[in-house]
Design a protein around this nucleic acid. Sequence first.
DNA 1: GCGACAG
DNA 2: ATCTTGTCGC
Length: 256
Amino acid sequence: MSAAPVQDLVKRWESEQAHLRLQVVEEDTEDWQRSPDFSGLERVAGVDLSFIKGDDINACAQLVVLNYPDLEVLYEDSQMVTLTAPYIAGFLAFRETPSLLEALQRLQKNQPTLLPQVVFVDGNGLFHYREFGLACHLGVLSGLPCVGVAKNLLQVQGVYKSEEHQSQIAALQKGGESFPLTSASGKMLGKALRSSDSSSKPVYVSVGHKISLDTAVRLTHSCCRYRVPEPIRQADCRSREYLRINFPATDAGMKE
DNA sequence: GCGACAG
DNA sequence: ATCTTGTCGC
C-alpha cells in the first residue's frame, strides 16, 4: 500500500507548518497578561507525554491544571494513547499534538469551568527551524495561549552553544534573569531564562501562541518552584507515576 | 567520517 | 523520550 518515503511525509509536514505558521499570534491578547502581577489569571496548565522504556508508540498523555498563583493541582488527566507518527527533529508536534489536543477537548467537555487560560508546553514554540514548534502547533489548533519551554537548547536559526552562549549563561546570577536568543536574520525567537536561584542551567522559553515573549518569560519565572515550571513538572511526574503503577517494569534478563 | 538531533 | 543511585556541596 503506502510505501510513502519519509521525505514525502516531511514535505507534507513542512507545508502544513508553513500554513499554520500564518495563524500564530505573537502578542499578548488577554488582560491578565498586561497586569504586573498577572491579576485575573487563575488557571495554568501543563502537558506532557511519557513513554515506557522499550516502547515508542504507546505513551501516557498528561494534562494538569493548576490554580494561580498557588500552583496547586485542580485537575489531572492521564490517558494511554497510541502514537502513529515517528519522532523527527523539527516535527515533534505531528507526534504529540493529537493526544494533547484530545486531552484539552476532554476537559472542555467534562469540566469546562476548569479550562486553563494558558498552557505550558514541553518543547519549543517560535524557537524552531521554521518558527513553528510544538507550542505554536498546539496553540493554533486549540486557540489557547501557549508558552514553549525547552530543557535543552536547539541549535537552530544561527543560535549555537558557543563560548559566547556559555558565558551568557554564566552571567545569569539570579532567578528571573535572561538573555535573548536571536536568529541570524535578527529576530528574537526566544530567551534563555534562569528559572530559579538554585538552578544554573537555564530553560529556553519561546512564544507558542497568543502571548508576547516578555510576558511568556515573566510568567514562566513566576510558575517555577524548581528549574522546570510547575505545570510541566507536575505533568511529567504524574504521567511517569501513571506508567510506573500501570506498567510495572519487567526485570531485564528474567524470563516471563 | 563526525556531529547534531525540542521530546 | 529512556537507560539510572548515590553523592558532593551549599
